[in-house]
Design a protein around this nucleic acid. Structure first.
Length: 1089
RNA sequence: GCCGGUGUGGCGAAAUGGUAGACGCACAGGACUUAAAAUCCUGGGACCGUAAAACGUCGUGUGGGUUCGAGUCCCACCACCGGCACCA
């Protein structure tokens, strides 16, 4: 193929224009306050040449952004330029339309591959990174994208990550005020701490009761341990920062040598590399993204993203509405024990037949501890109490009396109760009156279960998350021995622990309603727990409790007409055998009666549906939504529950045990009591550079590589630096803001600049268009929205959302229809395509393949097709003889490229003459289609419209220059190089003919405008009007003929013409014509029967 | 299982409820050429016909429905792609 003749000399044209644009800085976007250089095409177009561009003088802005790439060693693949081409076309289009277009590019350059290479070779990651960036730059520039390279940035630039660290300090020094539902500087939290810890209030403050309770609990715990007041204050403050240190189980990846966030773990493997991961208890930095769950969820409604992407985010945030219900545990004694569950179906509260608590739940240890405490109490009998007065608790724990010992004993005796000491060290000693029998039964039941509970906990702890979820076909669990009291009917309900309940969702405990929850049903069937139906619905079914094996006779019977009413088999999984769902309870009983095998009994099948509540006392007869309302009100009134919204989203694990990332601007210190605590570095100390290392491996003890740099690590005052680094996502959380003001060294972005590019100005706000792949749906796009909202709350940016419109480009598959990958050997390197077809053809093909959002396979023949189209465009304009001369001259290699290109002359058929109406119609149909398609991002059909134009124009004997010129303006965004070259050739023929209607305005003032800045053509609808149109004639909706009529034909005329039509006649002859449908300018349909 | 999306020639695809398949690829025939490539012209959903055509019938994943008329709207289902998944 390389030997075949070029369709046109793109190999000379493309470098020429790329160089021109570079030298001219043609696509530089001007900020308010910038001075526009004399002669810059933007300045000429907008009358700002040589002037300072004040915000009011600048035209409407348009910010069009690509997801910046990670500059890998492999270079660009054809997937990258798909989105880049789309945005470039739109950027050029908007520029032509007169917008001030911001279209930047940069590098997401922190990342693992460079570091792994460094571990292997000792080469500093910066060296690798810079080489890769150079290669990416070359490749991207060779595609002729109109980026403003003066704003180029890399997340690894010191001047960039200085501000990433600065934003981290903002996060560190902020807290989320639940009262105002937004982030505030940490200082505004201090009065609350003061009130909680010391009770001092300088001015009235309101604290949400739940929040106050949470803080008080923490404070009281510390106080009880004798912690100093200053430490308590610090702990409280640290516990509320948006960037905080958390102790918890985190995903650890041995191969990568680092922890990973939830979003980075897919199917129990690392998203990068697919290595196994495990949960490990560790101390890590975490960002409080959960505080924003509600706003991140709700604000999705305000932005124009694809449905599927929004759904992915909604799924990830996982909002569910329900209620928290408090259950008392049936324990004897003065101290009430309770736990709460989260449920989305509080209306089924009467159907609760057991409770499940996650094995990790503190409640489990609590109940065990309680028992031991009880045990001890029981050994000390009443005689040992010698104090003159003691506290008496009755079974109703709210009653407290202070009595003498003898009075207490008498009282106990009179009620037939024993007196049991509970807290002999209290003053006066506290005692309780209890039914001794109750104690005994509690003790016996719980102590019997202590060992099984411990065993089960251990067994669960050993399981990997994968085993607990994916592989767990059969449920496991053990009874705790304790009972809860159902608040609605005071029934005693057994409490179990089971690992199908997750500790980190909701409250870590559930109320089980097996009749209306699949998981609960399975568990109940397995452990023979009761199943109580409380919702009647259309879908309700009944089945056998135990799975059964059916013999052939039974199967036949089930399929016989006797059992017509809907029978379904459910596979019983590893339990073997089958459950049979019947629509009708009677049918089920009828079937099972007389069977010899053990089928348990007939119970409601788990059906999670809305319906009518039954077996539920005061809720009976309510519809599900009504019942939810009623029960919620009832619970709230009694103080037993509360409507709640729960989110699946977890806080964002923000530290990594890596070298090649932003170091945390944090140091660790010890207070007088020897407690370790963290402190932020002052802003003035930024940037904090990573130390230089010889060895980039983590320490043998698992400490991050930064810990190797002892000089860096240890500060003169004895404090020690944080050795973790930030994840790769940190840099990409705000790069779109840095582009606005990339060189600013006094702020991460200037206020006025941010306001010009991001603030809502009626037509648009934020980034006007963001294009990138779906793979970042829950990573980058969620994190960036979160940071943006924090910056918004703190007053640094002017919109609550960063990306108002976002489009996902579809995946490009290999020619085999498979995902492109090295191992499949189906990767296409753009460089190879460019050598053979040039950048314009490459761009055109990427867009012509199909709709931008669709997944589509790469087909090299398709490139040849659009390449041929560009050849036709070329031949439409140039003189063939001159081209032959050019080719001969090129072979001698004696002239410069420009001299060679100058040899190519315009086609003699191109003349400065008035266009015929037909020619204008062809042109304006094309303008209309291309313009509308660009507005709708339908690039493929815009290109086909241009093909239609060329197919027609190439047949014209005389080609009016004004028409061809406007065509080049349409072509320019798609194939800018060839368009510029041909534009420069037609400049010699200045149009006078069509100047009157402005359609071929070539200059403003006295200067000629570059093609890239010449105003976008407007189509004239009047030129598109047809005199004669073709009207289909249908009989009963079927096409029978097409007639030519005047565009002004009336309905009556059309009807007459249609009825007179000879071809249509046979189809209704002999039938009566019922009516004739006439749609003027559209069709005629004769309805006959 | 739940959520989102897609389904139209040999292929990529196009069609405000109104002539299904624009445009392009591949293919076939022709022109130019010693020849090939390139270029230019012509053809084309399937079936039935025919020397060739005309005409006809069928046709947008499947089955129903609404409508004078459905690729497009409604209902049910199937297949594929993507996401989530013991989330209470």
């Amino acid at each position: 193929m390389a030997s075949s003749r070029r369709q046109y000399p793109f190999h000379l044209i493309e470098p020429k224009w790329q160089q021109t644009w570079d030298e001219q800085q043609a696509f530089r976007a001007f900020n308010p306050g910038d001075s526009v250089p004399e002669g810059h095409p933007f300045g000429i177009r907008h009358n700002l040449s040589g002037k300072v561009a004040r915000a009011e003088a600048l035209p409407q802005k348009f910010y069009i952004l690509d997801m910046f790439p990670y500059p890998s060693g492999a270079g660009l693949h054809v997937g990258h330029p798909e989105g880049y081409t789309a945005t470039d076309i739109l950027a050029r289009y908007r520029r032509a339309c007169g917008f001030n277009v911001l279209h930047p590019m940069g590098w997401d350059s922190f990342g693992l591959p460079a570091e792994q290479y460094a571990v292997k070779t000792g080469q500093h990651p910066r060296v690798t990174t810079e080489a890769n960036i150079a290669n990416f730059t070359r490749q991207i520039k060779s595609l002729g994208f109109s980026y403003d390279w003066s704003r180029e940035l890399a997340t690894t630039d010191v001047e960039y990550f200085k501000w990433t660290q600065w934003i981290f300090l903002k996060l560190y020094n902020s807290w989320f005020n639940p009262e105002t539902n937004r982030a505030e500087p940490i200082e505004t939290f201090n009065p609350i701490v003061e009130k909680i810890v010391t009770g001092r209030v300088s001015q009235p403050i309101t604290i949400a009761p739940a929040f106050e309770y949470e803080l008080r609990t923490v404070a009281n715990k510390l106080l009880a341990r004798g912690t100093r007041i200053s430490t308590i204050k610090r702990t409280l403050v640290d516990s509320q920062r948006l960037a905080y240190v958390a102790k918890g189980d985190f995903w650890w990846c041995e191969q990568l040598g680092t922890v990973l966030s939830n979003e980075e773990v897919v199917d129990g493997k690392s998203e990068v590399g697919g290595f196994p991961v495990e949960k490990k208890p560790m101390l890590q930095w975490v960002l409080r993204i959960t505080a924003y769950a509600e706003r991140l969820f709700d604000d999705l409604d305000s932005i124009d993203w694809s449905n599927s992407l929004k759904e992915m985010q909604r799924n990830w945030i996982g909002r569910s509405e329900g209620a928290i219900v408090k259950f008392q545990v049936d324990v004897p004694g003065p101290n009430p024990v309770s736990f709460s569950v989260f449920t989305t179906r509080p209306d089924t509260l009467f159907g609760v037949t057991y409770m499940v608590v996650a094995p990790e739940h503190t409640f489990v240890d609590g109940i065990v501890a309680l028992l031991e405490q009880k045990k001890r109490a029981n050994y000390r009998v009443n005689e040992q109490i010698t104090a003159p007065t003691i506290r008496i608790y009755s079974e109703n724990i709210s009653e407290i009396e202070v009595l003498s010992l003898s009075a207490a004993l008498a009282k106990a005796k009179s009620r037939g109760l024993d007196l049991i000491e509970n807290n002999p060290t209290a003053n006066p000693p506290a005692c309780i009156i209890e039914s001794y029998a109750k104690h005994v039964s509690f003790e016996q039941e719980v102590s019997k279960q202590i060992q099984p509970v411990r065993d089960y906990k251990q067994q669960v702890a050993k399981k990997s998350d994968l085993e607990r979820t994916e592989l767990a076909k059969e449920k496991t669990g053990v009874f705790m021995g304790a009972y809860a009291i159902n608040p609605v009917n005071s029934q005693r309900i057994p409490i179990w622990i089971a690992d199908y309940v997750l500790s980190n969702y909701g409250t870590g405990a559930i109320m089980a309603v097996p009749a209306h929850d699949e998981r609960d049903w399975e568990f109940a069937a397995l452990f023979d727990l009761p199943i109580k139906e409380v919702v009647k619905s259309q879908k309700q079914r009944y089945c056998n409790r135990k799975p059964v094996h059916l013999d052939a006779t039974d199967i036949n019977l089930l399929h016989s007409p006797d059992f017509k009413p809907d029978i379904e088999f459910r596979n019983a999984g590893s339990l073997k055998g089958e459950w049979i769902d019947f629509l009708d309870r009677e049918e089920a009983i009828k079937f099972f009666s007389g069977r010899s095998y053990d089928f348990g009994d007939i119970v409601p099948s788990s059906v999670e549906a809305d319906g009518t509540t039954c077996n539920s006392d005061f809720l009976n007869g309510s519809t599900t939504p009504e019942a939810k309302k009623k029960i919620s009100a009832w619970l709230e009134e009694k103080g037993l529950g509360k409507k709640t919204i729960n989110y699946k989203l977890r806080d964002w694990l923000f530290s990594r045990q890596r070298y090649w990332g932003e170091p945390f601007p944090i140091v660790w210190k010890k207070d007088a009591a020897g407690n370790l605590y963290h402190e932020a570095l002052p802003e003035s100390s930024l940037p904090l550079l990573p130390p230089s290392l010889e060895d980039y491996k983590p320490m043998p003890d698992g400490q991050p590589p930064l810990a190797r740099a002892k000089d860096w690590l240890n500060l003169p005052d004895g404090s020690v630096r944080e050795t973790n680094t930030m994840p790769q996502w940190a840099g990409s959380c705000w790069y779109y803001l840095r582009y606005l003001d990339a060189k600013n060294n006094s702020a991460f972005v200037g206020k006025d600049v941010e306001n010009y590019w991001m603030a809502s100005n009626g037509k648009s706000a934020g980034v006007d268009l963001y294009v990138g792949g779906t793979e970042h749906a829950v990573l980058h796009l969620l994190y960036a929205r979160f940071w943006h909202k924090v910056l918004f709350d703190l007053g640094y940016v002017s919109t609550p959302e960063p990306f108002y419109k976002l489009v996902n480009q579809g995946l490009i598959l290999g020619s085999d229809g498979q995902k492109m990958s090295k191992s499949r050997g189906n990767v296409v390197n753009p460089d190879d395509v460019l050598v053979e077809y040039g950048a314009d053809a490459f761009r055109l093909y990427e867009m012509f393949m199909g709709p931008l959002q669709d997944t589509k396979p790469w087909n090299i023949n398709g490139v040849a097709g659009v390449y041929k189209f560009l050849g036709r465009v070329w031949r439409l304009f140039v003189d063939e003889t001159s081209e032959t001369e050019f080719e001969q001259a090129e072979a001698t290699k004696e002239q410069s490229n420009q001299e060679l290109l100058n040899l190519i002359k315009l086609n003699a058929a191109i003349k400065d003459v008035a266009a015929t109406p037909a020619q204008l119609k062809t042109l304006h149909a094309c303008i209309k289609k291309v313009t509308e398609d660009l507005d709708g991002m339908r690039f493929n059909t815009a290109i086909s419209a241009m093909m239609v134009f060329v197919n027609d124009a190439i047949t014209w004997e005389t080609k009016p220059v004004s028409v061809l010129r406007e065509f080049l303006q349409l072509l320019q965004p798609f194939a800018p190089h060839i368009a510029e070259e041909l534009w420069s050739k037609v400049q010699s023929l200045k149009s006078k003919v069509n100047a009157a209607d402005g359609s071929a305005t070539l200059s403003i003032g006295h200067q000629t405008l570059d093609l890239a800045y010449s105003p976008w053509p407007k189509f004239d609808a009047a030129l598109l009007v047809e005199n004669e149109i073709e009207i289909p004639v249908q009989v009963n909706g079927k096409l029978r003929d097409v007639i030519k009529v005047s565009v002004n034909a009336t309905a009556a005329e059309l009807e007459a013409l249609a009825l007179a039509n000879e071809k249509a006649k046979p189809y209704y002859e002999g039938k009566t014509i019922k009516k004739v449908i006439v749609v003027p300018k559209k069709l005629v349909n004769i309805v006959a029967a």
